[in-house]
């Protein structure tokens, strides 16, 4: 049996329903909420501000610090709160996905803190987190060369699909999850992870599909960011 029809009735290259909002955390310098289907990520940005302890400072360029965390109620089975091996890894890849677009050399000796909180998880959390963080960074007025959008692609059964949900990720006959983050203007890949098995051709097809998905997400990001100043 192969995967012929998606459980939620989407086309194979269709994203889940996306909702985005900017300015959700009042005390942060910039913040954004990004929802894909049932996955909700909230990102808040603080800084640039002075970095303490001082030995962590870099006199040549600013430091970007990302922190990814899943709320204990975000999954069906209660997750033990606090950092884990998984969240540490995701924090690191998020940092690297975003660092290339930020003009960090403008702010030596400072830190830009990005906190990503997943309040509801249904696969693709790191992608939702990156998309939210990019919007939050723009909202915080941090100089950036480009925007970043992220989406997961993968192989479910024998089909290449866009934006997997949890059920597809756990498909009995095996599924491959490939989170991809891309810059909007130059279309450079800043994050590419792979969990499972794919052939080279399938991977190329998946990346092509992710590119299309990222473009759609980028449009939503731009629309949301511009909307906050358009009312009235």
């Amino acid at each position: 049996m192969s995967y012929t029809k998606r459980d939620d009735g989407r086309k194979f290259d269709e994203l889940r329903k996306i909702k985005a909002k900017v300015g959700v955390v009042k005390r942060a310098d910039g913040s954004a909420m990004f929802q894909m289907g049932d996955t909700i990520a909230i990102a808040s940005v603080y800084g640039p501000r002075e970095l303490h302890p001082r030995f962590l400072q870099n006199p040549e360029r600013g430091v970007l610090r990302c922190n990814y965390d899943m709320a204990s109620f975000s999954v069906t089975e209660r997750k033990k709160p606090g950092p884990s091996r998984r969240s540490t890894e995701i924090s690191l890849v998020t940092e690297k996905a975003l660092a290339s677009v930020i003009d960090l050399d403008l702010f030596p000796n400072t830190v830009i803190d990005v906190f990503i909180e997943i309040i509801q998880a249904n696969a693709g959390t790191r992608c939702a987190g990156i998309s939210a963080a990019a919007m939050a960074l723009a909202h915080a007025g941090i100089p950036m060369r480009d925007m970043v959008a992220a989406v997961s692609v993968g192989k479910v059964g024998d089909k290449i699909v866009l934006d997997l949900d949890k059920e597809e990720e756990d498909f009995e006959e095996g599924a491959t999850d490939i989170p991809v983050a891309m810059t909007a203007r130059k279309r450079e890949i800043t994050l590419l992870q792979l969990d499972g098995e794919v052939t080279k051709d399938e991977l190329m097809e998946a990346i092509k599909m992710a590119r299309k998905g990222c473009e759609e997400i980028y449009k939503i990001q731009v629309k949301t960011l511009k909307e906050i100043y358009k009312n009235g």
């Binding site: 100089p143 480009d146 925007m147 731009v222 960011l225 511009k226």
Partner: peptide, 9 residues
Amino acid sequence: DIVVPGEKI
């Protein structure tokens, strides 16, 4: 016009 980072002016 309102622009976002990376938009061509």
